[in-house]
Design a protein around this nucleic acid. Sequence first.
DNA 1: CTCACTTTGTGCATGGGTTCACAAACGTCT
DNA 2: AGACGTTTGTGAACCCATGCACAAAGTGAG
Lengths: 228, 228
Amino acid sequence: MSADPNLRREIPDATVARLPEYLRTLSRLAEDGVLSVSSEELAAAVGVRSAQLRKDLSHLGSYGVRGVGYEVETLALEISRALGLTEDWPVAIVGMGNLGHALASYSGFVTKGFRIVGLFDDDPALAGQHVVGVPIRPLADLPACQVADPVSIGVIATPARAAQAVCDSLVAVGVTSILNFAPAVLTVPEGVDVRRVDLSTELQILAFHAQRKSLAAGDGDLRSVVSQ
Amino acid sequence: MSADPNLRREIPDATVARLPEYLRTLSRLAEDGVLSVSSEELAAAVGVRSAQLRKDLSHLGSYGVRGVGYEVETLALEISRALGLTEDWPVAIVGMGNLGHALASYSGFVTKGFRIVGLFDDDPALAGQHVVGVPIRPLADLPACQVADPVSIGVIATPARAAQAVCDSLVAVGVTSILNFAPAVLTVPEGVDVRRVDLSTELQILAFHAQRKSLAAGDGDLRSVVSQ
DNA sequence: CTCACTTTGTGCATGGGTTCACAAACGTCT
DNA sequence: AGACGTTTGTGAACCCATGCACAAAGTGAG
């Protein structure tokens, strides 16, 4: 029925995960005054194969010109639109320890569509303190804030033991997208998206590859140098 | 030749990425005094299918008992060994802004095999300050520290514009595993592993799914409520 | 206008990952 | 000892993602 061929139908997850990368590189090119890129150039700058880049971009329509390449400005706009960055996304951060502070003052937040509307922490020592012009409040104030400027994305930066309760509070006020930095698996009702970013997981994956390399080098004999 | 059938041959990347999750859950179970789990129970706790869990575990050997399940302690140890966490990994963090502080004081670092041996930042205001018993020094001191206690994993938590130079410094002193939190694509020589964690990428992926949901709900008409 | 050259968009083959389904292996109860 | 119920480990089928290779479509020169 509602075909609308050049609008999104279903963009594969793997492609969606790369779009932000493309967008960032295109923004940098635009700043440098570059007007047009080929798939070959852009792919090299991002670190993927050109065929993959072209296939990814083909999922959001046909915005290139054969024999020429892609217009930087246009392509950046189309990727922004596909990702939903032309809309406005009010974000709340819960847990204002070091990580919460880092996230709040992270430049990437403000640049594209994301707007911090609430900072929450139950530590009385933090209450009232402002971070980027936004006051830190106890989590109990969340429902009240929700009425004034509804949060659509919640970020959890608390210790693991508090994460599930915080998550429940967010879900209770209607948040359906959650970014979780706590090392805990959250259970949420149907329809709520949770993405988890875990610092120690990444470190462990790195350790695995490092170990592989050191095993490959010494190959079983020199292992004792390292293992002990 | 050197078959060694129950030792690792080649563990798929997708499996390696899930092992830390399994390990964390097993550790929690061990703390709670649980001695044995079935693949069904463990899979449910982690949030994957039981068949996937069994196939993942089969890559590191046969540590389950049919009709019974897995011994929690044993399995945790084997996963630790597979990931290389029974070895000692000296870590250096470069860039001690909010994120660097958060990473340094993150509990996940200390718990398993990772040991912070160096904190670096060129900001004179930070020099000499101690964070977790470790002093912050200028990056120029890196080569000297490297002699005393060689770093094997480097973490980059600087702004994007400094990331490549920092990366080059790390590579120059022999670091071959790098965890990069800066929103920049790093170019490194052959044999150096870089993993990138990008906060804004995760947010943008979340925004994409949130947009999909809101489009599905209002389906084109109520969109104006949100877009503006 | 035609020819030569460049670059996109995509059909197709290849490979890896996930899921299913079941035989093999273990404990237990009679 | 033998039968039964449970759970692992894995072969096989499916599914998605990646990479190749080429036709289609554009530009520019002669």
